[in-house]
């Protein structure tokens, strides 16, 4: 059947079976592989996208159920070559190692900051509690989101991260690029 939705601001229409999950529609039909696919059981949160601005697990939403709705994926976070402050925060504070949970974490962070621009660490931990990271132990993710909260307009510094000699692990920045 016909599935029509807005993805990162663009209207898209495709044919698809009702049983196609939103995560597979985004990855396999639209080719937007930034949305990761993990546990398949709505436990891990890797597949998190924003549906009408609200974070949801796209493995547990049918693409037809998202028809008529506004979907935002990690590909829609940066605008005109400028990273979202949340993305910058993940670079600044080393919010990722392997990067598998990162798109979902960043989208949940974006939705949180849109609602609560200055969350406490506890509020951040609660917000991301449905998403699993097996690398960082979450401390750097919380710091990354706090960085974004402290820099709502982003920072010009992070456009040239290699120029900062104090940066402990510059290779982390390359991974996220």
């Amino acid at each position: 059947m016909q599935i029509t939705m807005t993805v990162n601001g663009d209207a898209v229409t495709r044919e698809g079976e009702p049983r196609v999950l939103l995560v597979h529609f985004l990855r396999d039909v639209l080719g937007l592989t930034g949305t990761h696919w993990g546990c398949d059981t709505s436990n891990c949160g890797l597949c998190t996208v924003l549906m009408d601005g609200v974070p949801v697990k796209s493995c547990t939403v049918l693409a037809v159920m998202a028809s008529g709705h506004d979907i935002r994926t990690v590909e829609g976070m940066a605008s005109g070559g400028t990273l979202d402050p949340v993305q910058q925060g993940f670079m600044e504070e080393h919010g990722l190692q392997c990067g598998f949970c990162t798109p979902g974490m960043m989208l949940t962070a974006r939705a949180l900051l849109d609602k609560d621009p200055h969350p406490t660490d506890e509020v951040i931990r609660e917000a991301i509690s449905g998403q699993i990271c097996r690398c960082t132990g979450y401390a750097t993710i919380v710091r990354s989101i706090q960085w974004a909260a402290a820099h709502p307009a982003g920072s010009s510094q992070v456009e040239t991260p290699a120029a900062e000699p104090e940066t402990a692990e510059p290779e982390t920045a390359e991974v996220s690029a």
Partner: peptide, 9 residues
């Protein structure tokens, strides 16, 4: 109940 993302739906 569940987690915040599940509670959104």
């Amino acid at each position: 109940i569940a987690d915040p993302l599940v509670r959104n739906r």
